[in-house]
Write a protein that binds this DNA or RNA. Structure first.
Lengths: 117, 117
DNA sequence: CAACTATATGCAATGAAATGCATATTAAAA
DNA sequence: TTTTAATATGCATTTCATTGCATATAGTTG
């Protein structure tokens, strides 16, 4: 009940907001709302270097907001936090339908276009 | 539809999350959920210097999340953003009932205790 | 196993937000 | 009109996240 304890609770509660308070992470999560996606897919959608995308994914992963599943060379990420889905819906509106990214090499998009170089 | 435009939209959407991604502001908003409160009340509840509380309130005010109403020497703040209320409920749970802070001089608390020094 | 592809990690440089503190403002009271 | 009380603002400093980039890992293919 001490003030410090209370403050600590609030500090803990800010974690999820801190994750969402970032344009690239928000865009990643919005994309993942459409369905699971591999890194190269997100890389294509964001138009950012692969290392950059991986770093943001690590941040999200370390907080348990997303989980990854390896499949061959590809690593597929998906949202693993229902609360985050609700927060996204509150601020971004309903999730948009799945899509294939142009020039994305992942199996999900492959049938649609050619490899992204 | 250019990528940059999209990114800008996400950047804008992060604003509300950035406000909530701070323990002191989160605590302020959680207190304001109980009902409007003056600065000295929040000061008492947070156990932080007055200038500190005023600064956080300014941040919230500049984004329109709270509004202030002067009454004599006191300035009463209240939440002015329904979306923020929903976000708080999602993460902090339902708002707690109003309370009077011990040793708070504001009219709201005065009838309950004596002035805070 | 060598070469390639997808992804991850480490780290240094930068930049933005947080904090503390002194002081300004405004309103009431004496 | 001096004083006091409540709140606001400005600014310097520290703190922390972000970003870029080089490189590491790990699975795949030839």
């Amino acid at each position: 009940m001490p003030v410090v304890k209370r403050f600590d609770e609030y500090r803990k509660a800010t974690a999820v907001f801190r994750l969402l308070a970032h344009p690239a992470r928000l865009q990643i999560l919005d994309e993942l709302r459409r369905g699971e996606a591999c890194v190269c897919h997100l890389q294509t959608v964001l138009g950012r270097p692969q290392a950059y995308v991986s770093q943001q994914l690590r941040v999200l992963r370390e907080d348990g907001v997303v989980v990854d599943a390896k499949d061959g060379l590809n690593v597929y990420y998906r949202i693993a936090d229902a609360r985050v889905l609700r927060l996204l819906e509150e601020v971004l509106g309903p999730a948009k339908p799945a899509r294939r990214a142009p020039a994305c090499p992942c199996p999900h998009c492959a049938e649609h276009d050619v490899c992204c170089k």
